[in-house]
Design a protein around this nucleic acid. Structure first.
Lengths: 209, 209
DNA sequence: TAGATTGTTAATCGATTAACAATC
DNA sequence: TAGATTGTTAATCGATTAACAATC
């Protein structure tokens, strides 16, 4: 119901956390929760919880609170987790393989169909059942297999170049683990994961204690 | 010079990005940059750049701008990257090994001294030159080797338990890759990396295009 | 009905941006 | 000196919190 465009990125960033906590409540057998209860568990204000959800619809009931399962399902829909996403991983190094082995992604509907690497020694092998192809077959693959999300687990020197290939073949989104920020054309989503940045933030906070 | 306490987390989160871009400029041989030039490269406002840096001191010069190397060094100091941090990785699964192989951490002063795993098959092996010890030797290790940062690359079911051990032995910070949020005692920094959350955010944005 | 809790409007707080005097 | 650009104050914008009428 809410104006699905113009949702603040702050709200969006909080959605997966709600989803996680609601899932936890379901596992515990909790069927009903008020914004106040949830706020205490999650350590945020009840006001923020109600504001956030009401960006998307009226999921609660006065005097009762929220039905946990219903709210969970709604958040799932909002996040777009009711559909499947086809995914490839570019870069079969340590990180690429770690991600390929992470079965949680598959469970949530992010299905990794192929991996690519420029190292001939890796080509032909499998990681968690996923074939590793040579990078120079990437274009050919994408032509035959429209792909939603490409995971970039390659060095920054190659990232921008590979991204260009992906853009040409209408990739919808890039999950970027390389140490660069990609320039993305209109309509392509890029989510950067800067592990080094995260560790530096930690260093800053440690020293400031 | 700035009141080093009470720096907004928004500013802190931006510091590593500045550090990255300034490093890039140095690599390109750029010696001098104005807030306006930097703002165009980084796609933020010049105002924000000046505000951010002035939380920590006056690093620029009117009419000139900023000396890139000097500013880079100052940000390095602010982030606390002039010292070394002793680190251990708990969990030698795919992700733990991927992190152990990531030499960038060492280059920046985050030195991984040991890994721990509860799988006896892995104990005794090395990853990137780092010994894997059995998890039940963790306490003993920490007593002999004071450690700044523990990386948690273990399933959520074990995370809170291991964290308790770490707290008892005065760990300073936890870099948490497990799918939980840890309750940390006063004085311990926790930085959560929720890869699944990041991917969900991407899914939301893809659908909204 | 009385009690509880939502949905939503209004108030507050803080982050970002704009403006400009200081000064290199 | 004139031009450029900072450091910093003031204005704006938006996010968060508080308050409360609506209603289950």
């Amino acid at each position: 119901m809410g104006a699905e465009n113009s949702i603040s990125p702050f709200v969006v960033k909080r959605l997966p956390r709600y989803y996680r906590y609601l899932g936890g409540l379901i596992d515990k057998g909790v069927t009903r929760v008020s914004s106040k209860e949830l706020s205490e568990i999650m350590n945020v204000t009840a006001s923020q919880i109600r504001q956030d959800f009401n960006q998307f619809g009226n999921f609660g009931q006065q005097g009762y609170g929220y039905n946990v399962q219903y709210l969970y399902d709604e958040v799932k829909k909002i996040l777009g987790l009711v559909q499947h996403y086809s995914m490839i991983i570019v870069g079969a190094g340590n990180l690429g393989q770690a991600l390929a082995n992470y079965d949680n992604f598959t469970r949530r509907g992010f299905v990794c169909a192929a991996m690519f690497d420029s190292n001939a020694k890796k080509v032909g092998k499998k990681v968690n059942g996923i074939d590793i192809f040579h990078s120079n077959t990437l274009e050919c693959y994408l032509e035959k297999n429209p792909t939603d999300i490409a995971v970039l687990a390659i060095p920054e020197t190659q990232a921008q170049l590979v991204a260009q290939v992906l853009y040409r073949h209408n990739i919808k989104a890039i999950w970027n683990f390389s140490n660069t920020e990609l320039e993305a054309p209109e309509g392509v989503c890029v989510e950067n994961v800067h592990l080094m940045d995260s560790l530096m933030t930690l260093a800053f906070n440690v020293r400031k204690r």
